[in-house]
Amino acid sequence: MKVGLVQEEGRTWSSYTTSSLPSDTRDAHICAAQLNVWYGDKLALHDVTLAVDRGTIAAVVGPSGCGKTSFLMCINRLTDMIPRCRVSGALHLDHLNLMSPTIDVLALRRRVGMVFQKPNPFPLSVWDNLALPLKEHGVRKRDELRQRIETVLREVGLWNDVKDRLGHSALALSGGQQQRVCLARALVLSPEVLLLDEPCSSLDPLSSGMIEDLIVSLRGRLTIVIVTHHLAQARRIADSVAVFWAQAGAGWLVESGPTQQIFDSPQHPITAAYIQGHRG
């Protein structure tokens, strides 16, 4: 998706219309109600009501073009960067109203990390890839930088591979290693939410498995929302699953619930067919 680049701190191109939240979902970490996203006149996401509990992994599945990425981008307000994008409904992170025009989006994005489908390390050294966000958010001391970078690289299982070449370009790494740098880069800011947009789809099975294990190891510490095309993966790692579907170009939420319930006793015929189609 082409994202426009004008980002005015505290001011955005997109317009946000807030409505109130149903009371029974107020304990959830991320909570969306009647969330709509328009790109210009085109409705991209229609009436999504979804809650994600703290420390759990929520998988968002569905065919291409059903608004999964748009949903993720509402949570870290990357929607701000899309010209003529409008969002309406309610969306909260804890008690923070994400629809408010006055929230500090830079601070929000420190709390909500994101990893994209295609590994996108900056064309800098591995060290700079991780030091840049830290420095930007106020970590200046070399000792602290070093310690936080080492910790996070160990966490993503990359430390032994790159410890002797932290000064080398991150682009010289393999695809799987690059994606782990991106994951490390998102984690280095100690976010409370991690948004993963098909993080394994461009990787080989081995790298994909490593990323998957990493995601599972983060359960409990972070709230994770992962978009995936891979139903088996969703079933393996997710606590809850939300099935999105596209109708007349607009994405909507067919059904959401605990993983087991979605896979074993889907309530909606679309879910059942979708699960079935991927079983065979």
Binding site: V3, Q7, E9, L78, V105, L108, F116, N120, P121, L189
Partner: peptide, 14 residues
């Protein structure tokens, strides 16, 4: 564009 998305998602200033 991927670099820019990555930068924005990290809350980097313009």
């Amino acid at each position: 564009q991927e670099y820019l998305h990555g930068a924005l998602a990290l809350g980097l200033r313009r």
